[in-house]
Amino acid sequence: MIETREITKSFGNKAVLRGVSLSVQNGETLVVLGRSGCGKSVILKHLIGLIKPDSGEVFVDGEPVTGLAERELTSVRRKIGMLFQSAALFDSMSVEENLAFPLQEQGIRDLKVINERVAEALEMVDLPGEQKKAPSDLSGGMRKRVGLARTIIGKPRCILYDEPTTGLDPITSDSINHLIRRLQRRLGVTSIVVTHDMKTAFHCADRVAFLHEGRVHFFGTPDEMRASKDTEIMNFIEGHSGDTDT
């Protein structure tokens, strides 16, 4: 459903992506791993045209996205929901208004329908009854889950998760992992999950991409990754930096 071909991107003179090719099939979950600052968030932003690549192409359902103007991207963006790393809640709106916003933009005006869908989405992220709170009154983990609720409320066919479990306690993380799987199983949602949480990776992934030095260093199934003898991958999975205490 989504494919990138050799995308490169530099900020100033810093080359962040040096030729990234990835693809996700319909209904599949791809987990993108890599160290902080290696460009995972930048890749996700390329997929819905928030960032334009310096070179290379992005395809969604076979259609090239790269050349589209901002207004032409709307149809692509309606298909693909994105959970931002920072949650990116609109802080001038309450939780409820944040969640209602994508629905209103889709043209849904019926207040009863909106209220029901808002309640349902909050239920799914384990925050029932939090409609009236302001984003500034929420903890980091709660903001993340409200962000997730805002992402899934529009029922997108594909969801991009930017570190969905970072900053959450282990129990909540686990329930988010199950939610990602459930959305995929029940609704056939295609997912790309950016994370460095190995538990999320092995729980959710049909396929794993490991990003290193601006390229896809490894692309395969979770089992192939576990079996890999590549030092970069083994260090990442086990969390070895190579530093010593002395």
Partner: peptide, 17 residues
Amino acid sequence: TMKVTEQVDALRSIGVH
């Protein structure tokens, strides 16, 4: 503030210019 906290990107991701 909305720009640096990614709220502008969030608007765009919802399909709002």
